[in-house]
């Protein structure tokens, strides 16, 4: 078990909005810009579709970091979804921090459909941060780990 932990490969869940960030990820792929294989993308219709339970549920199921990507403020396909998402995530992340959970584990980035390079950069950076933080211990569900 000890050895397994050493080469623990962090699992990252990325919620990507359908209109911008998911297309951005697509572009990153088609432009052969690499991003870590342990980033699992979940496509959502809009960043504001992401309910705080989604984030927590991702951690429960074994994610070590969760990132939410949406259209740039002002560019939301549904006019204002990402503004609401921004408020919600700010409050949620602040609460997680208040409960003593490492704030670096959660992140929000705005990535447009044209920003394949940014997507790849963000994911690489985030994966690196999570790697340094190590395994998610504070929001883990032991039942999912055995």
């Amino acid at each position: 078990m000890q050895e397994l932990n050493k080469e623990h490969k962090p699992l990252i869940v990325a919620f990507c909005c359908n209109w911008c960030s998911y297309a951005g990820a697509d572009l990153a792929g088609s432009s052969r810009l690499s991003y870590p294989a342990n980033v699992k993308i979940i496509r959502v219709p809009c960043s504001c579709r992401v309910n705080p339970t989604f984030i927590l549920k991702a951690f429960q199921k074994g994610a070590d970091g969760v990132i939410l990507c949406g259209c740039h403020p002002g560019d939301c396909h549904y006019t204002s979804g990402n503004y609401y998402a921004r408020r919600r995530m700010t409050l949620l992340f602040s609460m997680l921090d208040y409960l003593g959970i490492e704030r670096e584990r959660t992140r929000v980035e705005w990535v447009s459909a044209a920003e394949g390079a940014k997507f790849s950069k963000v994911m690489n950076e985030f994966a690196k941060t999570i790697c340094e933080l190590g395994e998610n211990k504070r929001l883990e569900d032991l039942r999912c780990k055995d």
Binding site: G74, Y83, R107
Partner: peptide, 10 residues
């Protein structure tokens, strides 16, 4: 509610 200049979650 929201404003365009809200604080960023990070």
């Amino acid at each position: 509610n929201y404003t365009t200049g809200d604080i960023e979650p990070n």
